[in-house]
Amino acid sequence: MFTKSAALESVSQDVFFEVAAFLNKEARLLDEERFEEWLGLIHEDIHYWMPGIENRRRENPLKQGFYDKDHMAYFDDSLRDLQRRVARFRQPSAWAENPATRNVHHVSNVEAFVAQAPNTYEVYSTFTSIRSRGLDEEYVIYGRRYDTLIRTESGLKLLKRLILIPNATLSCKNINTFL
């Protein structure tokens, strides 16, 4: 399981406010399918990672317990990969996106710390992603996120994201959104 880097200091109230606003804005851009603007919040060196979860015995873990960097993943993306996903959403022939999927991204339990590298913050949060498609399909994915945000000339950017869901079996057919 992921653990927080040792003895990091909390950010100031001002920075905390800024970080929370960043996360909320990100969630809203995704809900409103404003993917290009969402990509604008992403740093060019992004590692956007959601490993697959393996149900293992405690005495017999993978390198990170129930996930591993060599394990199959849901996302293990660079900026190019994220752009390709957005490109699919934007095709008129993305048949399964029309009618649109309606999204609500919910973010909470935010903590923010001053990271070791200059101008970076470690930010932890929990999320719930609720999607509905068609007349009656509903999918709920929830989990924990471990982000690194970096302050650039054009504001805060997402440099790293680790998304951990508790499920070893995804309870739906796909993840046609970002988390």
Binding site: G52, E54, D70, H71, M72, A73, T169, L170, S171
Partner: peptide
Amino acid sequence: FVGGCIRSTYE
């Protein structure tokens, strides 16, 4: 095989 197994659900 590399990287374990991913399991998902389809109706």
